[in-house]
């Protein structure tokens, strides 16, 4: 049966009450770009008793810098982030945002929503992971923070409890790091990544000192590729690019035989390009 009740809370407190009451029997609609279609085709499990639209909770709509991070509210859209001067410092994030869907999708879709959906190919998730972002989860019993590495538990699955809301995304400000995002898709617009990579880099001159590499669409969840990072650290950019070329990180678990060889062939290529791009930005800053 279809949902019988519609909630349109105006505050976080009201929102959390509904979540607490219905738990897995309420579906949260944020941007709705994914979940509304699944509601129509009956692909929301278990079938919900209620739908809660959270876009009118004004206290969740913000982008601000505080305590050494940029905080993005739970209903803030991709379009708002794209036009935010605060987000502009995260090159990889901006590049990922520009690759998401098309302008009408970005107008309404949200990073919090896509985190909840936990699609392994989600462009923004890869960028946020590389940038060391975390999420703040709120429930009636309090708040907790999870890093992106802890967040995803399986394909389309997160570690969120059913009474929890993604209240905020925190992206640490790191003035010494630069980042870059690269995505390969089947066509040039409005397409899901075949493979994506985000590299967050701290370099001294031409030498990569600290690096985080995240990969999209190479495993059931967005992954951090520490095995690649190990190949990059303390190498010059050129050596690092050469080292990752052709390398298939152990964090990738490619099952579909159709795309396995392709993805394996290009992971190193796009990580290498992302390293160069991130480094070029470092140079640009000086």
């Amino acid at each position: 049966m279809t949902a019988q009740t519609f909630y349109n809370p105006a505050s976080i407190a009201e929102l959390l009450d509904v979540l607490d009451k219905f738990k897995e029997k309420v579906v949260i609609v944020n941007g709705g770009t994914d979940v509304v279609e699944r509601l129509q085709t009956g692909r929301v499990a278990p079938p919900p008793d209620a739908i809660m639209y959270i876009r009118n909770v004004a206290e969740l709509d913000y982008i601000r810098e505080e305590n050494g991070h940029v905080a993005v509210g739970g209903i803030t859209s991709y379009a708002e982030m794209l036009s935010s001067p605060l987000c502009r410092q995260f090159g990889g994030l901006m590049q990922a945002l520009a690759e998401i869907g098309s302008p009408p999708i970005r107008t309404i879709a949200t990073p919090a929503g896509n985190i909840g959906t936990a699609a392994p190919a989600a462009d923004c998730n890869a960028a946020l992971m590389a940038l060391g972002a975390s999420v703040v989860l709120a429930s009636k019993t309090g708040e907790r923070a999870l890093s992106f590495e802890e967040l995803f538990s399986g394909p389309q699955k997160t570690c969120l409890r059913r009474d929890e809301l993604i209240r905020e995304i925190r992206i640490p400000v790191n003035k010494t790091a630069t980042s870059a995002f690269i995505k390969l898709a089947k066509r040039k617009a409005q397409d899901i990544a075949q493979v994506s990579a985000c590299v967050c880099l701290e370099a001294e001159g031409d030498v990569c000192k600290n690096v985080v590499v995240s990969l999209g669409a190479v495993a059931p969840v967005t992954v951090r590729a520490r095995s690649m990072e190990a190949l990059i650290v303390n190498k010059t950019v050129d050596d690092a690019v050469a080292a990752v070329r052709g390398f298939v990180p152990s964090e990738a678990s490619l099952r579909s035989p159709r795309n396995k060889a392709y993805k394996e062939a290009v992971i190193g290529v796009i990580v290498g390009r992302a390293i160069k791009k991130a480094h070029a930005e470092t140079a640009g800053r000086k």
Binding site: N8, G32, E37, I51, P104
Partner: peptide
């Protein structure tokens, strides 16, 4: 696509109930 408060949005993935 329709315009909602001036923004182009896809009406097949918008809930009418959210148009208050």
């Amino acid at each position: 696509t329709v315009l909602v408060d001036g923004e182009a949005l896809r009406s097949c993935i918008l809930l009418t109930a959210s148009m208050q």
